[in-house]
Amino acid sequence: MSNLPPPTPRKPIDPLIQQRVANLRRNQSAAEAPAPAARQKPVGRRVKPARASKVASLALSAITTVGLAGVFAHSSQAEGAGTLTLATTADATAATTATTAATAGDTAASSTDSTATTTATVDTTAATTATTATSGQIADGTYVGQASSNRWGTVQVQAVYSGGQLVDVQILSYPDGDRKSVQINQRALPTLIDEAITAQSADVDTVSGATYTSRSYTESLQSAIDAALAASGLA
């Protein structure tokens, strides 16, 4: 509208408005070009506006990419010596599970059966009698290992103990919460030359098989066994 020519001859401009416009112009140019050198080359500025911001955003993006990758590499602690950072988190998890289990143990000792919860996602039904709880075996229930992320999501190993026996291992995967459960007692074993091997109970005390990295440890059956031991208050 202001671009249109005035239909009638112009009135003299109000000095107050004149002052305001001048103020605005001053503010505008001050904001646009803080450096006097830049003000001398308005043409160049118009051809390549926001050049500094563009360069800055590109640089920031590149640095962030590399930095994040470094953080991921560091936090996953894939291998090498001195994986102490993960040790503390593992300890912390063990400590929290141990506390929950300690309460579960207490209740189990005082009454004949009780219910406890190890994690928010999984209910632990410690329907054990006082005798089994004190006999030094792992309290019945479901134990969840530490979460571990990989290319396909985040997984947690979950071990189910019943009557002191490891009866089931489930892999919880996030975010879809899909449970790929395999009943290990019914597990089809690989074809074997030695016919003596048949389907057998896989209730084991420990697992042999190189877990080279701390990350792969969290995905292993051994970590679930350790979680169960710690949580049973046997430690």
Binding site: G136, V157, I184, S201, V204, L221
Partner: peptide, 24 residues
């Protein structure tokens, strides 16, 4: 072991960290 029985050692399944291929 804690039950006073022989130790049971699972040998990790080569393709599956959560399962054992054999128990010793």
């Amino acid at each position: 072991n804690r039950e006073g029985e022989e130790w049971r050692v699972g040998v990790r399944h080569p393709h599956d960290a959560q399962h054992v291929a054999l128990v010793l």
